[in-house]
Structures are given as structure tokens and as C-alpha cells.
């Protein structure tokens, strides 16, 4: 059957090439904004949250190309973003809305929420925008959604050590039924 589809492996981003200040900074101090964009929205509401696509749509830090140059990162390199509320590894990519030097944008989703502020200041709504953050280059992998949830919340693993959980076998990109991976199910019948 032919389905019209809106799948997209990763969002389309521009060339970040900038010559000046390359590699000048180890750590970038910046302002973090989170929110929705169309790639994230489409992928999330389609339900493809376990997939690589969601990781690329939601687990990506959109940066000003000059900031990327300063850190010496290219599109889809991995960066570690830290705030007072946590840290997370995401991909870096050139922002479509640049220039906005000193501000980075991560789409809402489990990655962003690992580091956003839960402070509501008594008005019900957490502070998702305007959070002070640092960004640095890293070799660590960007986790898939299921792995990230396991790493952050550890609800169903008997392990406290972050490093150990981070390096456990991946839960994969498909639902995980009865300990059997989706791919192992015959005809996907339950």
C-alpha cells in the first residue's frame, strides 16, 4: 500500500560555515530556549517517538553558526548541554532562525526537558524558556528516546549509576513487548 508520508530522517538545516573565531571556546555560556517546531511537532504527533527521526528532530540543539564555530562543531556533531537542572547530550545544528548569537534552541521533548526548569513560581507553568546554559563539545552519544528515559528516570532498572545505564544495550526504535523486540514478533501479531 502506498502511504503518502511525512517521514524525514532529520530536519533540513543550512550550512553553518563561519571562518572567524573557530575553536576559540571550550564552553559556550548561553541562554537556552525550548519550544516546538514543525519537524518535532510532526514527528511527535505521528507517534514516531522511539525512532531516530524523533531523536534528530527533538534532540537537537539549534545554534547560531558563529557559536558553532567558536566551539568548533559542525552540523550533527554532539554537544553536552548543562543547566542548573541537569545535563543532556544532543546534536548540534545550524539554526534556521539565525542570527541569534548567545541563544540556543532545543525543541521540546525528553531531551530538552532533562535540563529545563521545573520552577513555576506559583503560576502552574514551568520555566521552559530563558534558562542559563552551557554548551560544550562531547564524544558521548545522543540517546534514543527510550534509552534517554531509562537513563534519566531509571524507573525500571536496578542501577543507580548514570554511566552504567547510559551504556546499557539500547532499547531500540520499536516497542518492546514481553521482552521481545517488535522485529522478533511474527507478522507483528501479538
Amino acid at each position: 500500500m502506498h502511504y503518502a508520508n511525512s517521514y524525514l530522517e532529520r530536519p533540513v538545516v543550512g550550512d553553518p560555515h563561519v571562518d572567524s573565531d573557530v575553536g576559540r571556546l571550550e564552553v559556550l555560556n548561553c541562554m537556552l530556549n525550548t519550544g516546538s517546531d514543525i519537524y518535532q511537532g510532526a514527528c511527535k504527533k505521528r507517534g514516531s517517538t522511539l525512532k531516530e527521526e524523533y531523536k534528530n528532530a527533538s534532540g537537537t540543539c539549534y545554534m547560531d553558526p558563529r557559536d558553532m564555530a567558536k566551539l568548533g562543531v559542525k552540523n550533527w556533531d554532539h554537544v553536552l548541554v548543562k543547566t542548573d537542572y541537569g545535563e543532556v547530550v544532543v546534536s548540534a545544528a545550524r539554526s534556521r532562525d539565525a542570527p541569534h548569537e548567545g541563544t540556543v534552541f532545543i525543541c521540546k521533548g525528553p531531551w530538552a526537558n532533562t535540563i529545563t526548569s521545573h520552577e513555576t513560581y506559583c503560576c502552574s507553568d514551568p520555566t521552559y524558556k530563558g534558562i542559563h546554559a552551557t554548551v560544550e563539545k562531547t564524544d558521548r552519544e545522543v540517546l534514543l528516546m527510550a534509552d534517554l528515559m531509562r537513563w534519566v528516570y531509571k524507573k525500571y532498572v536496578d542501577e543507580e549509576d548514570d554511566d552504567v545505564v547510559e551504556n546499557m544495550e539500547s532499547l531500540g526504535e520499536r516497542p518492546f513487548y514481553n521482552g521481545r523486540k517488535w522485529e522478533e514478533l511474527e507478522n507483528h501479531e501479538l
Binding site: K44, P110, P126
Partner: peptide, 10 residues
């Protein structure tokens, strides 16, 4: 899971 901050989801 996708939309609450870490501090709440914990």
C-alpha cells in the same frame, strides 16, 4: 514524559 521538566517527572 515528553513535556514535563525533569524535576516534575522524577
Amino acid at each position: 514524559g515528553a513535556h514535563f521538566p525533569n524535576g516534575a517527572n522524577q
